[in-house]
Each structure stands twice: as structure tokens, then as C-alpha cells.
Design a protein around this nucleic acid. Structure first.
Lengths: 154, 154
DNA sequence: CCTTGAACCTATAGTTACTGTAGCTCTTAT
DNA sequence: ATAAGAGCTACAGTAACTATAGGTTCAAGG
């Protein structure tokens, strides 16, 4: 078990970028770690733990604000679980809405591609469907619930 | 058929905000319209058409750059349809990836919520699952393909 | 004709969640 | 001793808008 990790090691272990770690520190999502005599950050395993937590939550689509709430929750382990549960449930609702929307979008795209089998643009359904209001009366219109954009899982 | 639309009318007809219309003009996605003597923008139906096109494409998850390509394509109607088709197909691939990811995420959230039925945070699976690397080995990890974030369909 | 209030104008800043760059300093290996 | 590579700060940029401030124009009512 290695203590005294550099920011690069921590970032690698947690699966995020060095800049992202510094950014999370800047916005107060992780505490500022101690520094070496040469001013470089020194982390331990708990930083990896918390960054991994954050990454997972981001991958699950939680906005940073929700993650902030979850973290403050987890810092008070004797409180009721209900708040964390509520956050997860709200997130589940978002995810379900997103899935519905995307399925509608997929139908529309498949339809567009189906129609567009070689030919000139003036006959191209891709352009036409996008241009014409009446041709796309699927539920695609209530798409795009205002949710966190997904992190680039790099 | 009304000609001489104000920006507010156009925005309403196309289902987007006034600022968004000005923004699209600013970034060159729509042409700058003529102005009244009092410097106010004057649109006609073709602006509504193009803005609707853009909104649909955004709702389908196309990034503005792809929309830009589509528009420049549609300005040359004698070219092959293949390019537009390619853009749509790439988009379909993204949509499918997103759906897969979200379904995995939904499983994970449902599992979390299932486990978390009243109790204290120290026993809460929501926190635990998010904290622990090994507990979430679903395909959630290849989630979050770098795609355009969805527009707020307002 | 004058006034009121909504809608318009420009310019700029803020949003989210980072990512990238410039120009340094520090650490580590040879 | 030196050179590569990683770290440091600070700031700019990204997408795609959204919001604000502070001013102008337009349409309707008195």
C-alpha cells in the first residue's frame, strides 16, 4: 500500500486527468493535500478513493452538485440514508427519460438512413426530415432533458 | 403567410430562444438578416425553416459542427447524398452507444436504490457502490462517449 | 401627440465540467 | 551535472447556450 502519491499517480489510479484533480481541489470537491518542500502535492490512498467515487458518480451522470451533496452526506455516516436514496432516485428518473428520448431519436435516425440510399441531396431524407416540422412527430421533441453532460471517460 | 417577422416571432415559431437566434447568427449558422430603419432584425419564413432544421438536428444530438456540415451540404443540392448519410450514420452509432451506457447505468442505480431501504448512511449502498471500485464492474465504465451534450429543449 | 411597456439592441459575463497552453520549478535518473 | 519528465500557477479556450445591464425602438392607449 503506497502512501505519498504524486498527483500523477493519484490521477492514474483514479482514472482521471491531473488537471481534473487540481480542478476538483479548486472547486472544493476534494481537500487540498499537504505539499512537499518543493510545493508539490502529496496524496494518500484516501484521495484515490474519493476521486474514484467522484468518477463513478460522474459516469452515472450525477452532476457535480449532486456529488457534492453525496460527499457531504458520506461525511456524516449516522444520518439517514434517505437523502442519498433520493439523489439516486432523481438520477434514475433522469436516466429513464434519457433512454426514452434516445430510443425515439434512434428510430428517427434509422428512418432517415433507410430513406437515404444513394441519390442526390435534393432528394435526401436526412435533410428533409430535419427541415420539415411535420415529418418528425415522434416523441423526439421532449428529448434532451437538462441533465449533466457525460464526462469523457478517458 | 407572414413575411417580416421579428426575432421574437421567429424564435417562437422555431421553438428556440431569442438569444439563441442571435447566437446562431453570431457563429454564422444562419445569415444576418436585413434590419429595419431602427436597427431591428427582419426575418422571413426561410429563417424559421432553417432554425427549425437546426433545432431538430440539435434534438437528435448533432453537434453544431455537424449541423454546419449538413447546412453547407443542403446548400449544394446536386452533390451526392452520401455525406449527409454518413453524418446520420455516425450519429446513430453515438445514439446506440449512449443507449447501451444508460441502460447499464440504470441497472446500477436500481441496484443501489434497492439495497438502500431506510437505514444509516454508513450502511448505505449508494455511497458504497460509488466509493468502491470492485462493486461496480458493469459496463458502466465505458459509458459517456464524447458526444454533444443535449440541448435544453426549451 | 405623448407616454408607457414590451420587445428589441449590443456587449459582456456566467454556466458546467472540464481541457489546453505558457512559462516556469522540482524531482529523478544517468 | 545535466536533462527529461512531471509538477506548479495562472489564464484562455471549449460547447452551446443563458443571463444581465443599460440603452433604443415599436405598437397601443389616452
Amino acid at each position: 500500500m503506497s502512501r505519498d502519491l504524486t498527483i500523477g499517480r493519484v490521477a492514474e489510479a483514479a482514472g482521471c486527468k491531473v488537471q481534473t484533480v487540481r480542478y476538483y481541489e479548486q472547486i472544493g470537491l476534494i481537500p487540498a493535500p499537504p505539499r512537499t518542500s518543493g510545493n508539490q502535492r502529496v496524496y494518500d490512498e484516501t484521495a484515490v478513493h474519493r476521486l474514484t467515487f467522484i468518477r463513478h458518480a460522474r459516469e452515472l451522470g450525477f452532476p457535480l452538485q449532486a456529488i457534492r451533496d453525496l460527499i457531504s452526506l458520506s461525511d456524516h455516516p449516522d444520518q439517514s440514508c434517505a437523502a442519498a436514496d433520493g439523489i439516486a432516485k432523481a438520477q434514475l428518473g433522469e436516466v429513464n427519460r434519457r433512454i426514452q428520448s434516445l430510443i425515439a431519436l434512434r428510430h428517427e435516425l434509422e428512418h432517415m438512413i433507410e430513406q437515404c440510399k444513394g441519390g442526390k441531396i435534393k432528394d435526401c431524407r436526412v435533410i428533409e426530415v430535419l427541415s420539415d416540422h411535420t415529418l418528425c412527430e415522434t416523441d423526439a421533441h421532449d428529448a434532451a432533458a437538462p441533465m449533466a453532460q457525460p464526462p469523457s471517460a478517458g
